[in-house]
Amino acid sequence: MNRFHVHLNVSNLDDSIRFYSQLFARAPAVVKGDYAKWMLEDPRVNFAISTTGRAPGIDHLGIQVDSGDELVALGRRLDAAGSTVVPEPDATCCYARSDKMWTEDPQGTRWETFHTFGDAVTYYAADDACSTDAACRPAPAAVQSRCAPASGCC
């Protein structure tokens, strides 16, 4: 089952953890010095916050899938929607390892689709081939795709 993903930039992690823990009636599943994540079932959402030095507010939205095959299918749908789709295979981001695809909607809102397959000890791996900044969100227009989503490579 897919899970909706929301990532917010926050100015004060501790205050935000207190607020969202009360709102969601539970502590985060992951807490690091610059990041926290709740994996909620009602509503089914992967809700993450971080202090990455960006302006507070919505960083990106996304859909987390349970398998690589589901990611390929979702990539085909994104490709059919007509925006540039940027694959980011084997990415280290947000203390996890994932295969990802990035795109933007017509308003410029960034969308991350991803399949997580492992944990990582760092927030971000600076040597990821497709990443362009520490917020783990390459700009689709700025990154050249190494493969087409429909090819099943990601």
Rank of each mutant, 00 (worst) to 15 (best):
R76G: 00
P87W: 03
R54I: 06
R26E: 14
G53V: 14
D14Q: 14
H60G: 06
D79I: 00
S145E: 04
T116P: 00
R3E: 10
T116C: 13
K32Q: 15
S50Q: 13
P138M: 06
G53R: 12
F24E: 06
S11M: 13
C154L: 10
A29E: 12
A27I: 04
N2I: 12
G62V: 08
T51K: 15
S21M: 02
F19L: 15
T109G: 01
T52F: 12
C94W: 06
F4M: 10
G152Q: 05
P89R: 11
S21T: 10
G57S: 11
G62R: 03
A96W: 03
A129P: 09
M39N: 13
A139G: 12
L40D: 05
V6D: 09
G57W: 07
D133Q: 09
T52Y: 13
Y35S: 12
A141S: 13
D105L: 05
S151Y: 08
A125Q: 09
V85Y: 00
N12L: 11
S21N: 07
I63A: 10
N46H: 13
P149C: 08
R97W: 05
P43D: 09
W38M: 10
A120M: 07
H5I: 03
Y20S: 04
F47D: 06
D128K: 05
F47T: 07
L61F: 13
A134F: 07
E112G: 00
A27K: 14
I49C: 09
C136E: 05
G152T: 08
C136H: 03
A139F: 02
A55F: 09
D15K: 13
P106R: 05
A142W: 03
A141M: 06
A25H: 14
F24Q: 05
D42A: 15
G75M: 04
S11V: 09
V143E: 02
D133Y: 03
D79H: 06
F24M: 08
R26W: 03
G62P: 06
T113V: 15
R44Q: 15
D133E: 11
P28S: 11
I63Q: 07
A150C: 04
G75L: 02
C94K: 01
Q22K: 13
V86Q: 01
